[in-house]
Design a binder for these strands. Structure first.
Lengths: 347, 347
DNA sequence: AGATGCTAATAATACGCATAACCCTATGCG
DNA sequence: CGCATAGGGTTATGCGTATTATTAGCATCT
């Protein structure tokens, strides 16, 4: 096999009887300081073809400065086995736009440090710098945020998919507009005549949850109850009903599933006896078994796309960072919300 | 922001008070001609950390070093929207093993040339070369094969996921043992008493299909009928029945779905009136709606894992290429195969 | 005749890293 | 004492390309 040496520009140049610089110039097409006779150009192209020349991309990026690679860093496994938190739709969007913007994608898998904890710095080196810029996904704890703040301070362009706040606040991100979507769902309930609401919130303080609560609070309609979905017991539900609530706003689908159980238990039916809305689409990836409740869809694919676009524009066009982008959610008016029941008949 | 220059080995060297060569040696770990004092090594590592050094992979590959990156090249979009040919399970395996072997993954998205055709050489450049080696997936036409043969001749380590033959025949791959699995399913039918078989084959000549047919042929039980699933009409089915067939071997699930329709139409039931086996799992990603028919499962995740392992061993340990690995499929004895019916009662 | 400008090309250099070739010092040994 | 050897480095070089600085020839203007 003999590991035949690659054909380089020097070889082509030799054959065409010109200097290597001419070959490079012919290749890139940019005639900056250099001008080339059409005939010479043809000779070079001919020689390239004859020798089967292909540029060495490593040398190109070394000389040119850009690798045309975008990193993808996730705070969980990129391809999780439990399809619970599912990066797939994001990745679809990322791939699509990366391809369009002409960037390859570097999936950082070498990031699992001690205790299965993912970290950007590993062995003291920041692996992200391999790429021209990086897209980030997933849940971060405070230490992660510190770390990321440092990476950004060092000048590496990052875009988070989802709103994330870090110390210093210089993080760019593309988020879904949970606040508006929540607001709209509550407005929808108000239009149906509902007046007494309760919002069931998880104790988590993630940005996405905060945004939803913000949207709810902006409507000024009422109470927020914070509890783990597991704590949302039948007794708890009964208490809510007794308080005269006519509509529930559920922070996620885990509340919704428990609620469905409770209502079935009591022989209640939505929206006849009670209306509810769910703030987001189900985490589990079931396409077909999509529940028909009223909710909104997170534009995951678009978020991926826009994140890439933001990053690419920053890298190529010099769009200044940080930049934040908010994409609208798509409302799904389903079968869990309806007019206020005339008589609160139950019991 | 000021576009501060990257930290290079020279910077680290300066800070640690050593030469750049020492920094490089510390980094790669290989002490060939060079020996390093433990204390010096620590100083260097310290300096790296302080300056936030990260290797420039372009320079690394150019200088003949290793970037600890494995390429992933697919002949379709990596994250397809129609979840038809679904790379996901492969990717799961790839990611898992890549992480374990300490390689990042480079997803080649910059590969779409004219007419939506994917090609390794794009604009005449071989994009694969930034990575130390490359994993390939998907369907190839003859031109693709030529191209890949060239890449391999040029010395770039490649492992295909699935058996693929290329001109020259030097391609490494990890495949599922379709031949054995098919053989076993037919044996299963033989054990149930079946004697008259027909194998429904698509006209395609892909390796995976050839392997299945090979397994079928090895049993010596009978006929192969080649037709598009769409051509498998009710009339066609009736003709088969009239010929006295008691068991069908279906090359894929598209035949199976049509068969199910035909049988329902005629009021037939499997395995009461007819047995069939399906050579592989359904292409569509439906988890729950998994059909209960007799078939085998392709060990996709394991294939991904083993492909990475092969490649990593080749890169690190010097395992010679080409290498071919065949993994067993998992038989799923389902409800579409049973004993030969006593009376061929239908009509 | 000298200055100017334009075309067409060459030579030189930098990019960041890996590695081969080389050098110096201390130590051991017969 | 002379030499071999091992330890601990340094210098120099090359990888393939992009790009800048430079040169050389020739026509045009003043």
């Amino acid at each position: 096999m003999a590991e035949k040496r690659r054909v380089t520009q020097k070889d082509v140049a030799l054959r065409a009887g010109v200097s290597q610089a001419i070959v490079s110039t012919v290749l890139t097409g940019k005639e900056g300081n250099i001008r080339i006779n059409q005939e010479t150009r043809n000779r070079v192209l001919q020689a390239m073809r004859e020798l089967g020349y292909t540029p060495n991309i490593a040398a190109q990026s070394l000389a040119g400065g850009m690798s045309r690679i975008l990193g993808v860093f996730t705070y969980d496994s990129v391809f999780p086995t439990n399809r619970k938190d599912f990066y797939y739709p994001f990745l679809e969007g990322i791939e699509e736009e990366a391809s369009r913007s002409d960037f390859d994608l570097l999936l950082h898998t070498r990031t699992v440090g001690e205790g299965n904890r993912r970290s950007i710095y590993r062995g003291g080196t920041n692996r992200l710098l391999v790429a021209d810029g990086t897209l980030l996904l997933g849940f971060m704890d405070p230490a992660h945020r510190e770390e990321l703040a440092q990476v950004i301070a060092e000048g590496h362009p990052c875009v988070f998919i989802g709103r994330r706040e870090i110390p210093g606040g210089n993080l760019s991100y593309v988020t879904a507009d949970y606040t508006a979507a929540t607001w709209q769902l509550v407005e929808h309930l108000l239009a149906l005549g509902h007046r007494k609401f309760v919002y069931l919130a998880e104790p988590k303080q993630q940005e996405s949850a905060l945004d939803r609560r913000q949207g709810y609070r902006e409507t000024g309609v009422g109470e927020v109850v914070s509890l783990e979905p597991g704590e949302f017991t039948l007794a708890c539900f009964k208490r809510l009903l007794r308080s005269g609530v006519s509509a529930l706003v559920l922070e996620n689908d885990r509340f919704a599933r428990r609620l469905q159980g409770h209502m079935a238990e009591l022989g209640l039916e939505a929206p006849r006896d009670l209306s509810y809305v769910v703030l987001g689409d189900p985490l589990s990836g079931e396409e077909d078994g999509a529940p028909g409740w009223t909710s909104f869809e997170i534009p995951r694919q678009a978020m991926g796309r826009e994140a890439v676009r933001l990053l690419a524009e920053h890298l190529l066009g010099g769009l200044a960072f940080p930049r934040q982008l908010s994409l609208p959610c798509i409302l799904r008016l389903g079968n869990s919300s309806g007019p206020v029941p005339q008589t609160q008949g139950w019991g």
